[in-house]
Design a protein around this nucleic acid. Sequence first.
RNA 1: GACCCUAUGGUCUAGUGGUUAGGACACCACCCUUUCACGGUGGUAGCCCGGGUUCGAAUCCCGGUAGGGUCGCCA
Length: 457
Amino acid sequence: MKVRVRFAPSPTGFLHIGGARTALFNWLYARHTGGAFILRIEDTDTARNTGPAVEVILNGLRWLGLDWDEGPLTSDPAGPSKGERGPYFQSQRRAIYQRHVERLLARGLAYEDDGAIKFRMTREPVEIEDLIVGRVRRELTDREAQDPDFILVRSDGQPVFHLVNVVDDLEMGITHVIRGEDHLSNTAKHLALFRALGAEPPRYAHIPLILNPDGSKMSKRDVGASLTTYMEEAYLPEALVNYLVLLGWSPKEDRELFTVAELIERFDLSRVQRHNARFDLTKLQWMNGEYLRALPPERFDALALQTLRRAGLDPDRFPPAYVRAALDTCRGKLRTLTELPAYGGFYFTGVTGYDAGAAAKHFTPENRPRLQRLRDALTRVESFDAAALEACLKTTAAELGVKPAVLVHPVRLACTGRSSGPSLYHLMEVLGRKETLARLDAALQTIPASAGSPASP
RNA sequence: GACCCUAUGGUCUAGUGGUUAGGACACCACCCUUUCACGGUGGUAGCCCGGGUUCGAAUCCCGGUAGGGUCGCCA
């Protein structure tokens, strides 16, 4: 039988990072088995659900690269979809739910109570055979022992989650329900409902949850809980996917970096972890850096440009060749794109100030004549390229009887305002002779001529 | 409160009765080096606790502890 799995989020305007991972596991399982990945929108809570909220889900999945074989094509519940088992918005499936409720009613498996319809739940413990957790025997809680029946349809006629979830899984021919472990206890209800509907339930696979770094539950409010955050902060989707899949699953090998194709080939439910995992942003950043470094230059440049513009810089004022050369010196040195404006912004803004600590250390009276000497030497360099610049700086240092580093640090500070950054010689080459000299002159202005007294203008 | 799940360094994990307990991130040191990254080498650090079973337990069983989940006319 062909595998059919689904991701069934409710549109709240928010896609939880844990939800994204649930979608990923479902998608990988479908692709690994050659099955179908179905997207279903659980919008029964009509008051809260809006088009933009659905858009958040669709955009998030698309950004991650998780394409669905069946499901909505747009955020419009009445709009087009693909697949034979639609509609894929629960708000459009009222008649289907009603049909099943009436059957339950007719057979005495459900009954009316205060205008709502309740399900006659079994009083016996329920055995759950979970693909990940194993066999679970779920007994009634003390509250349930008093009244185990639960609502299927509210008194206002709205069907409830347990009902719609089960009916849809049944109607859509879902074979494997891969979902968060927070649903494990609910599974008893779902199993009982499947039986009452006279249907064979799907296989269940409950995956562990993602926790905050401190081990607490990751809820909407926690930073990093929303997929949108990573999209906005320009993380690479392939890096996030790689990081997320390793949170609760591991391949056999001692490897951590995998292409999506390799993940599809390796993914299986049997190696899914049984315990929750904490989200470690530092490791995600490391992984993002790995992917950033491996990016083709054209794609890096495109993303870098976006990031610069978003940071309020205006790289488009500069000649394309200059921009390309500038970004070339930054590629491979960043963990995240958001570091770029601080790292290479000096190419596009000029030097707006000097790092105070570094200035105190390197813009000293005794360095002043040295810098002046280097400045003069730079006017005589024939070809203003990295190799020639390195030679020039080293020769000058030798003539002065100091180590190259004595010049390197103040020159870097003068050119960039900071104590670290791209390769100094390459950065000067990109800046060009005129700009480099201008920046050196500007720096010389601020350096005191002798100890204690500021430079005269 | 009841019910359910889980437990290997700070974090993610490999491990399914016999291993000097492996890898990755982070951290520290050194090397490389024009800074910072990258890369390389080395290092600190772990089987939650207590009982069993066994010649032998990280691994199996029981109890405890801790963390997480569920018990809605939310999903």
